[in-house]
Amino acid sequence: MKKWLMVFMALALSACSSSEESKTWYQLPSSQLLTQSVASQGSRLLWVEQVAVPDYLAGNGVVYQTTDVQYVIANSNLWASPLDQQLRTTLVANLSNQLPGWVVASQPLGSDQDTLNVTVTGFHGRYDGHVIVSGEWLLNHQGQIIKRPFHVELAQQKDGYDEMVKMLAQAWGQEASAIAAEIKRLP
């Protein structure tokens, strides 16, 4: 009888450990990735040089804030590709959609380009059901430097990492819209 109990315990423990090891990979959804045609004369150029994230966001794990001072980096809910790359790719796509007459790229475009650098300091879910996207961006427009902080906070409609990632993408899209609106006001 003890032998069967030991076999049952071993099977139960192995079943638990295998389910704990399953991983879920997340990619930020892009609303509309578009292929931009080659610039015609008179097009304005914007190089999204960098989207930087701090070390706690640079790993594979999706980040969740559990209290006002504690953060957890998930072991089983992971980014499918580096977060800074995902943020840069979706920012380029969103700005391309929202800035007609501009060529927006993640590579240098020439000597007449404007340059955008973004530092993301928060990109996580929070214990109260909200997601936080915060940081600052710096735009070099014809030698003029424009610097703006940002903080977007949205409430999740449902629980879970899927919903959290979708809401983070929505908040990032809202910030892209704010950046585009600022760029449209440039001379």
Rank of each mutant, 00 (worst) to 15 (best):
L57Y: 02
A10L: 14
R185E: 12
S37V: 09
Q70F: 01
W172F: 02
M1Q: 07
K147Y: 01
Q85K: 14
M6L: 14
D84P: 11
Q85Y: 10
M164Y: 08
N117R: 13
D112S: 12
P54E: 05
Y127M: 11
V7M: 09
T24M: 07
S81M: 03
L33I: 09
L11E: 07
I179F: 02
I132L: 15
V165G: 06
N117S: 15
S17M: 12
V72S: 14
N140R: 13
W79V: 11
R126L: 05
K23W: 00
G129D: 11
L109Y: 03
Y64M: 12
H130K: 15
D55M: 00
W47K: 00
I146H: 12
L13Q: 02
K2Q: 05
T90E: 08
Q41H: 03
Q142E: 12
A80V: 08
G125D: 11
I146G: 00
D159V: 04
V165I: 14
I73N: 02
P29E: 01
Q65K: 14
W25D: 01
V120K: 03
W102H: 06
V165Y: 05
F8G: 05
Y127S: 11
E163M: 10
A171D: 15
S19D: 09
Q41Y: 03
Q36D: 04
Q41S: 13
I132A: 10
V118D: 01
A176I: 09
Q144K: 15
Q41L: 01
R88F: 08
Q98A: 14
L186D: 10
K158I: 01
V152L: 12
Q32W: 06
F123Q: 08
M1R: 05
V63T: 12
A93V: 00
K3I: 06
Q41D: 13
T24Y: 11
G101P: 09
A58N: 14
D114H: 12
Q86F: 09
G101A: 08
W102N: 05
I183W: 04
F150I: 12
S134C: 01
W4N: 07
I179W: 01
G135V: 06
S134F: 01
W172G: 08
S37F: 08
L87C: 06
A171E: 14
Q144W: 07
N94W: 00
Y26F: 15
K166I: 04
W102G: 02
V92I: 15
V7C: 08
V7T: 14
S96Q: 04
K23D: 07
S31I: 12
T24V: 13
Q142I: 02
L87W: 09
L87T: 06
L168C: 04
A15I: 07
T115V: 15
W4R: 09
S40N: 04
T67V: 08
Q32M: 04
L116A: 08
V152E: 15
E163T: 07
V69P: 05
F123G: 02
T66H: 11
W47T: 05
K147E: 11
I146Q: 11
V63C: 06
Q144E: 15
E153W: 02
P149I: 01
Q85S: 14
S17R: 10
